[in-house]
């Protein structure tokens, strides 16, 4: 939704965003290239679907039902007493300053993290083509962070930038920057964002390198013959062709920023100082699994689910029509 703004693709995509999916639902209206299998009896289809449906049942429907049912009660963590409280868990959350602050931080954090990750990964992927010597080392160094567990990398970042003992913090101090993530919320937010981006750049990088390799060499050579330099070729030939990958990465980055950064947050700031780096998901975890306020935690996850659904729909509506899937 963001990264695609400057990279507007062709405008001849379907007018209705979900029409491509809608077409698949109508069995006989198959166009060329779209394959549909038909079963005489429904039995086999049901059997083939069963494993996936079972997984969905256990990993999605039952937990969703649990979260929904917990969101409207207050419960003793041991399961002894359950009190129906209606919407109280939600009203308390929405009235809470710290929850609103957490939502605002989460919003900016995921967006900035997304743009920065894609931008840096894009730059590195573009540069990969230009690196001739030591390409293997170059790639290895970039891919390394992905192999490190989030909590371990979080501890490393926390230590390196610790204002009392961290070497990076000393360096910043020597430049005259009063770096202190324990006392300056902005510093903590910067630290979390940098750590999250560092951890995820390699993921985007792999996909972008692969996508760039798939760009037909003939197109690039043709552009080169027409006198386009490497940068121009990248933006006018490669980028439009790799847009589906970029779109996929935008969604993956949002997923990562929203849901997978809590290991890093736990290790680097534990949501502090004063809740400055408390994302919505970290709060769900903190309130539910550490502080055992299950009702509030369930209500938060229901709100998160709603936000995620709205975001996904918005992204598909806003972005998908600008992405060209056909080369």
């Amino acid at each position: 939704m963001l990264a695609s703004e400057p990279m507007t693709g062709r405008r001849d995509a379907p007018a209705r965003p979900f029409s491509r999916f809608a077409q698949r639902l109508v069995p006989m209206a198959s166009e060329s290239g779209l394959k549909a299998a038909h079963f005489r009896k429904g039995g086999i289809a049901a059997w083939l679907l069963a494993p996936q449906l079972l997984i969905l049942l256990f990993f999605f429907f039952i937990p969703s039902w649990k979260a929904l049912s917990l969101a409207f009660v207050q419960v003793d963590p041991f399961g002894g007493t359950t009190l129906f409280v209606g919407l109280e868990n939600f009203t308390r959350l929405l009235a809470s300053d710290s929850y609103r602050a957490s939502a605002v931080f989460t919003f900016w954090f995921t967006i900035i993290q997304n743009v920065a990750t894609l931008g840096i990964a894009g730059l590195l992927a573009f540069a990969t083509d230009q690196v001739i010597r030591g390409r293997f080392v170059y790639k290895s160094v970039i891919l390394l962070p992905y192999a490190i567990a989030p909590v371990i990398s979080g501890v490393l970042w926390a230590f390196l930038f610790n204002p009392a003992v961290g070497p990076m913090a000393q360096f910043l101090h020597s430049l005259g920057i009063p770096w202190d993530p324990n006392r300056r919320p902005f510093d903590a937010q910067v630290l979390i964002t940098v750590a999250a981006v560092w951890k995820h750049v390699c993921y985007d990088y792999i996909f972008l390198v692969a996508a760039l390799l798939a760009v037909p060499q003939s197109l690039i050579e043709a552009a080169a013959l027409d006198g386009a330099g490497p940068v121009r070729r990248f933006f006018t030939v490669s980028v439009p062709i790799i847009m589906p990958t970029v779109f996929y990465l935008v969604i993956m980055n949002f997923t990562y920023g929203l849901f997978d950064t809590f290991g890093i947050i736990d290790a680097v700031t534990a949501g502090g100082p004063g809740g400055a780096t408390n994302t919505l998901v970290y709060k769900v975890y903190q309130d539910g699994f550490v502080l055992l306020d299950l009702g509030s935690s369930a209500a938060q996850s229901v709100i998160l689910m709603a936000i995620a659904i709205v975001f996904t729909i918005l992204q598909f509506r806003a972005v998908e029509r600008k992405v060209n899937y056909q080369v």
């Binding site: 990993f59 999605f60 937990p63 969703s64 979260a67 969604i251 949002f254 997923t255 929203l258 849901f259 997978d260 998901v281 769900v284 996850s301 998160l304 689910m305 995620a308 659904i309 975001f311 996904t312």
Partner: peptide, 12 residues
């Protein structure tokens, strides 16, 4: 995708 991921985390 979002929904699944959220639930995965909790189930995990």
């Amino acid at each position: 995708m979002f929904r699944l991921d959220l639930k995965d985390r909790q189930m995990g």
